[in-house]
Design a protein around this nucleic acid. Sequence first.
RNA 1: GCUCGAGUGGCGGAAUGGUAGACGCAAGGGACUUAAAAUCCCUCGCCCUCAAAAGCGUACCGGUUCGAGUCCGGUCUCGAGCACCA
Length: 801
Amino acid sequence: MSYDHGSIEKKWAKYWDEHETFKCDVHDFSKPKYYALDMFPYPSGQGLHVGHPEGYTATDILCRMKRMQGFNVLHPMGWDAFGLPAEQFAIKNNEHPEGFTRKNIAHFKEQIKTLGLSYDWSKEIATIDPSFYKWTQWIFLQMYKHDLAYVDDIPVNYCPELGTVLANEEVIDGKSERGGFPVIRMPMRQWILKITAYADRLEKDLEGLDWPKSTLEMQRNWIGRSTGVQIRFNIEGKDTHFDVFTTRVDTLFGCTYCCLAPEHPLVKELVSAEQKEAVEKYVSDAAKKSDLMRTSLEKEKTGVYLGATAINPINGKSIPIYVADYVLGSYGTGAVMAVPAHDTRDYAFAKKHDLPIIQVLEGDISNEAMVDDAPHMNSEFANGMNIAEAKAAITKKLVELGAGKEVVNYKLRDWIFSRQRYWGEPIPMMQDKDGKEYPIPEDQLPLVLPELDDYQPTRDGKPPLSKAPDAWLKPTIDGKEYLRETNTMPQWAGSSWYYIRYIDPQNDKAMADPELIEHWLPVDIYVGGQEHAVLHLLYARFWHKFLYDIGIVKCKEPFQKLYHQGMILGANGEKMSKSRGNVVNPDDIVNSNGADSLRLFEMFAGPLNEMKPWSTESLNGATRFIERAFRLVSEEPYTKMISDENSHELDYSYNFLVKKVSTDFENLDFNTAISQMMVFVNDCYKAKSLYKSYLEGFVKLFSCVCPFAGEEMWSLLGHKDSIAYEKWPTYDEKAITLTTVKLAVSVNGKMRDVIEVSKEATQDEVMAKANESAKVQSFLAGHEIKKIIYVPGRILNIVVA
RNA sequence: GCUCGAGUGGCGGAAUGGUAGACGCAAGGGACUUAAAAUCCCUCGCCCUCAAAAGCGUACCGGUUCGAGUCCGGUCUCGAGCACCA
C-alpha cells in the first residue's frame, strides 16, 4: 500500500473536526495548562504564503507534544482583521470593507485547515467582531479614566496619500511604513496614550523574559533609557533660566555654548531685537521641515544665534545661546549644553559657526571630537579624573549649588493612538458643544461602526466617520446632545490584548472570566515574526501592565517565552516576491506533496529562527522520508518483522531517539529532532525485527511533525482512536548508557586512532590499549612522553617532546 | 555611525572546549526489473594515490589551552534593527 497523502489528509482533517479532537476545556484545571500562541495573521487578499505554516507548525508540534505529556493545551487562532488594504478596497469599490475582510478570513481559514494544525476553532476571534472590539473600546475607556489617554493638538506625521496620521513608529525614513508614501509634519488633534508613564517598567521587566536576545535589545533601544544630569542655566541679564539634559556632565567645563530646539518655549522670550527676524525665519522653516528633510540634511548643522547669553553654573562663564534644529524638542528638555571638544555634533556645529572649543579630556581633537575616556583637564577640581570620577565630582558640586540633579530620560514617546480612517475600532468618546471630552457610558459598548455612503477621508484630512449619519454622529444622552469622536483606533489596538480574549471568547460580561485569566496567563510560548519585535510587543506589554494595575490580569508580563521564525526565502535565496517570480503557494505544495511534507520540510530545513531558502528537492526529500517511515507499518517485509517481543537490537537507537526528540522539541530545535527520527528509521531498515512498542513510540514523536501520516500509521498499528492524547514515550537511561566507549587517542592534540575501552577504564589501562595501536606507536616512537591527558569517555591525549 | 546576530563540503545544515561535516539534498556506483520509474544497499571535504598512509581544511590575522568551528583580542564580509536621543 503506497502513501496517498491526499486521501489520508482529508480523512484525518475530517476526523479531528467531527471528534472536536483539539477542543480545549478551559475550565479543566486538573491538568497543568499550556498556552501556545501564534501571532494572528492579517487576512490579506493574497491568502496564505509559505511563511505562515512555519511558525504555526512550530507551535503545533509543541502543542501535540504537550497534550501527550498530559497538559491541558490552549492553541487558538484568530484574525487581526482591521487594516488598510480592506479600507483601500472599500474606497476603490465603494463597498463596505467588512465583506472583503470576511471573504479573506474564510479563505485563510480554509487554507490553514489543510495544514493539520491542532487549533481549537471554538476559540476563534476576529478583531472586527463588535463582541471583540467592545472590549478593545472598554480598555480604552479605562485608560481614559486613569489619565492615560488624552487629546492634544500636536505636530503629527500626516500622510496625504493615505489621508491619515501615522505613529512615529510607522514612519520610516520620512515615508509611511505601509506603501512608502511621503509624510509631512502638521499639527492636528489626536488621541494619545501615555505609554511613557510605563517606560521604566517596560524597560525593567524585560529582565527575566525568555525572549531572543536581539528582541530584548531592540526593545531596550526603543525605550532608550539613559541616566544623566539635568543642569540649570541662568540667562544673563534676565530673571529666567532653562534646563539642559546631559549624559556627559563631566565635560561641563568644556561647554562653550548652549542650543535650544526650535520648538523650545524660551526661544521667543529670549531672542534679541537684532536677531528677531533671523530667528523667527529659522524657527518657521524648521517647523515646516518634515522628518525626511531633517534627516536628509543630516550632516549639515544649521542654527542661529539668539542674541542672548547664559551662565555656566560650574564656572560662571558667559556663553552664547543658539537655536538649532539638531536639538530635538521632544527629547530631554529640548535644550543642550554644547561641548564641541567631546561631542561630534557640537564639534561640527562649532566649526561651522566659529565657536570656541575648550578641550577638557586629554587626547587629539584636531580633526574630530574626542569621545573616549581619558584624564580630564581644564576642569579645576576634576582635573586628572576619568569620566566616571569627574561625573560624580561635578554632579556633587552642581547639587550643592542647586543647579543640577540626576535624572533619567527615555527615547520612548507617547503613542499617537488615533487614525483618520474608517476601518478601525471607533474611539468611544464624544464632545459636547463646548468641545469638552466625555467617555461614552460603558453600557453603550460596543460602539459599532456605522455604514457609510463613501469611505474616503475628507480632503482636509477629516476622518471618514465625520460623514456618518447624524443618528450615529450626534447622539443625545440624558437630553444632552453630543458629537462623536470620528477618529478610530490603529491596527495595533486589537492585537494588544487578543491573547486574553482567546481564553474566554464568548464572555459578554467581561474581557474574560477573571478566574480563567489568572489560570491561563501568561502565554507559555509566543511565536511570530521578528518584524513585531518592537511595536506590537511593546504595545501589548503596555496594555498588559495597565490591565495588571487595574487588577484584570495577575501577571506582569503577557508572553513569558517568545520565539521568532526566520523567513522562508525563494529558491534563489532572495526574499519571495511576485516581481522576483520566486513565490511558492502553500496550496500547491499541499496538493503536490501534502501538508505533512510541507511541515516536515520547513521544520527540517534549518534552525527555526534562521532564514531558509525554499528547495523543491529538499521538499521531495521530506516526502520520501514520510513514505519511508510509513512503509515500516504498511508494507512487507517490514510489517512481517513487527513483533511484540523485543530483540533489543534497537534499544539504544530508540531510547536515544526519545531522549533527543523530547529535549529538542522543548528547545524548538526541530531540525535536529527530525534528523534523529531519520536515524531511527534508517536503523529500523537495518534491523532484523521491529519491536512494536518502539514503532509506536516513534509514531507518537513523528505525529507531532507529520500529524496526518502519524494518525494513519497509528491506526495501521491497530489503534482505533486518535494518537493525539496518547502518552508521551519515556526512555530508559540505562539503554543509552554504554559500558564501553570508542575513545579517540590523539598525540599532541592530533587524533591518531580510536580504541574501544570500558567507560571507567583507568589511565593505565587506556594507555596500555593505546600502546597496542600501531598508528599511535608510529607517532610515539623515538619521542619522550611528557604528559598524558585522559578524560574518561572523551579523549586520551599523549603529549610528546 | 551605533547596537545585535551570523560566516563550516557542490547545497541546506550537525557538532556540553575533546574523532569536524550527524541528518538531508544533489552526484556517482550496485541490487531488483525485459526496461524505466520507484524501492533497497554502498561511496561522497580538499590534496596525493591503484590503494593506504601522511599532509591541508570551519571567512582572515593573532592569542589562551594538552587540545579551538566552539573561548579571548583584532580585521573583513553578510544580515537585521536604530539613526542628530545630547
